[in-house]
Amino acid sequence: MLKLVGLVLHYMPLIFGIGFLAPLIAQLIERAGLALPYGIAPLAAGLVIGGLWGAQAQFRGRWI
C-alpha cells in the first residue's frame, strides 16, 4: 500500500497534468467562449496541453 502511495506521488506531475490541468484548460476555453480550429474539442486540447505540460514537468522536475 505504501509503495503504491509512493508511486502515485512520484508520478504526480504527470497525473496532475491530466487529472487537473486538462479539465481546467478545457473549462477555461469553454468559459472564454473560444472556438478551437478544426472543431477540436476543448477537453481534447486540455488533455494535449495538460498532458504534455505534466509530462515535461515529470521529466524535467519543474513546471516553469
Binding site: F16, G19, F20, P23, L24, L28, R31
Partner: peptide, 16 residues
C-alpha cells in the same frame, strides 16, 4: 489532489 481532480472532472476546475 484527489479533491482537486474530483472537482475538476465534475466541471468545477476553475472553482477548485
Amino acid at each position: 489532489y484527489g479533491i482537486l481532480f474530483a472537482l475538476a472532472w465534475s466541471g468545477h476546475a476553475i472553482e477548485a
